[in-house]
């Protein structure tokens, strides 16, 4: 039973560590987020950009 406080302290320290690390910019996570947004905006997943009609309207 008296092992509980130690376990609690350890996990509190771990959690605090996570929060501390999060102050730094998470570059890898930002890249992933950027890629997900770019996929959506540029429609890269479907690979069928709707450029044909607007190209026809250009000249």
């Amino acid at each position: 039973m008296n092992r509980m406080p130690i376990a609690l302290l350890c996990s509190a320290a771990l959690l605090a560590g996570c929060v501390t690390i999060n102050i730094y910019f998470p570059a890898a996570a930002a890249e992933k987020a950027a890629d997900r947004i770019i996929d959506g905006v540029w429609q890269l997943q479907q690979d069928k950009p709707a450029t044909a009609p607007s190209e026809g309207a250009k000249p």
């Binding site: 999060n22 996570a29 930002a30 992933k32």
Partner: peptide, 8 residues
Amino acid sequence: AAWAQSNL
């Protein structure tokens, strides 16, 4: 907490 950190 770790997951939240690896995803924005």
